[in-house]
Design a protein around this nucleic acid. Sequence first.
DNA 1: CGACAGGCTGAACAGGCGTTTAATCTGTTA
DNA 2: TAACAGATTAAACGCCTGTTCAGCCTGTCG
Lengths: 215, 215
Amino acid sequence: MCSAKRSAPSDLTARAKIRDAAILLFGRDGFNATSVRAVAAEAGVSPALVIHHFGSKDGLRKACDDFILGELMDEEESAAEQDLIGTLHRWLSEPDIFQPAFDYLTRALDQESETADRLFDSLIARTERTLEEGVRAGTMREPTDLKATALLLAIQGLGLLTMSRQVGRTLGEARISAAILQRLTLPTLELYTNGVYSDDSMLEAARAALKGDGS
Amino acid sequence: MCSAKRSAPSDLTARAKIRDAAILLFGRDGFNATSVRAVAAEAGVSPALVIHHFGSKDGLRKACDDFILGELMDEEESAAEQDLIGTLHRWLSEPDIFQPAFDYLTRALDQESETADRLFDSLIARTERTLEEGVRAGTMREPTDLKATALLLAIQGLGLLTMSRQVGRTLGEARISAAILQRLTLPTLELYTNGVYSDDSMLEAARAALKGDGS
DNA sequence: CGACAGGCTGAACAGGCGTTTAATCTGTTA
DNA sequence: TAACAGATTAAACGCCTGTTCAGCCTGTCG
């Protein structure tokens, strides 16, 4: 199940070494702030070889995007029932291996990229499906606006990822960790079981206001 | 209440024109992707003047950060009861004026900056306070982990901001808008009133598992 | 053996970057 | 009027960027 892709760098082809170095640096410092020369140095090759293998810096980014997306999809397939939080849990339990991919994903998500869009869309679709199944099985309430509700849930999960630095900081650690995710499990379920409001007066007030407002 | 800071550019000092141009471009294209020369061109001055007034590109960023943060704090003070969503609502109702600031904030939030940290901290503190007051007034349930719950709520709100592009895309518009925020009002309140789960079996299962697990 | 292909390199190029420098213009103060 | 201070500029500096080019190895095929 756990691929051997990240074995000793000496075992990898130069192409793979460059790709891994790029994922590391793009994730750590961002795409713009990472030079082709820095990637080459990290991979132990010449800058020219990077271009030789990937055509351009943008080609390299594309290759990294595809690789990360592929790895993520593999992961998802082999644990089809899990949700995003579950996947994060698994990733965070082996930080040395997955941290670079984790960081890369975080960076990719707050940039305008086709990869981020595809990832987001598939996450929304999956959340909608989960919601529908839950309603059919009677374990979940029927939302008045399925897509909007799925969106809110997805944002919650992704927010933990993209703001992992702030999440860690707030809870007293340098970055998000398995321990922090564990601490968040109960409050999350609590929120999704009882909500925050003790009665539906706010909800009804809003419903009435929106009905009156018309537009 | 509505400041006259964004009047016709010709009325502004060169320093202010440069600052506004920088906010526009940093917000639209990102800090790294924006050159001092581009800011100077947008403001209609020479690149050297930018350095003359702000010392360096980083000094310019700092000045923009402080300005935006100050504007936001002013806004917040004059509407002390409102939450973040309320502020967003007000901002989005005058997009021409506030869009640059909105974009700038979005960019700032997913970069490692002291400004973002301060903003996040104050948002968490405010959310905690709101939660405590709600509990005391009986309108909100008492969470088992106040800080973690405040964190989840803050992430939900900020996630709408930092992922506004994806939010708009998912709901069929180019970017987030007042209409989209309105569509999200009811699902949000619904979520925070009833949760998603129809009973507390998931919550109790997790509680039991965590109790048994120990660590 | 010779020829070819592909991985790989050092050196260079053109262009953009943030910043500096020296000079000019403009308005105020003595 | 003379002197000064600040705003503003054109031009240049040195550096770093992504990319190209010509050539060198190394292994394979005929």
